[in-house]
Amino acid sequence: MPSNPTVGVLALQGDVREHLAALTAAGAEAVTVRRPAELAAVDGLVIPGGESTTMSKLAVAFGMLAPLRDRVRAGMPAYGSCAGMIMLADKILDGRDDQETVGGIDMTVRRNAFGRQNESFEAAVAMTGVDGDPVEGVFIRAPWVESVGAGVEVLARLADHTVVAVRQGHLLATSFHPELTGDQRVHRLFTDLVRSSRA
């Protein structure tokens, strides 16, 4: 039996601990990643929720942006929740002018699209690839996916058809935070993706 895949969580800022716990429960060896050498040692990477402008600045300041782009381009599986979705988007709206993303998913994501914290909400989300009950979607000053390219599969929409989860090949992104719910099905989906990319 092959060993569990090593999955990193980008630990520049954000809800790192929750992702580490969810990945561990999903059968991955979960480790934090803040430096290029740590990135080089993982089979897949989660970019957590947090403040995307802060994450972007720290990634630039500590020489992580180019290595992140290189590994994503080379086929490393990556999953981004909320701010992580913004980081994986090729294009963003309502970001800062100087805001850099890792990119990789051919989509346009609007930052803080649902509004401020008072508009943050929970809603049940039915998601392709996650069997059983809908996922409990926790949306916190969340982004949404405004448009996607031909190669992107939409995995979930809200009742009003807003796109909130996508996949393009080895890259997965959700507007919401499964790491806050104790339901590890999305992290299992990602861990399986990492496992199959390693095989």
Binding site: L12, V16, R141
Partner: peptide, 8 residues
């Protein structure tokens, strides 16, 4: 959850 996003 909002505060969790501010961590670090």
């Amino acid at each position: 959850g909002m505060a969790e996003q501010l961590k670090g």
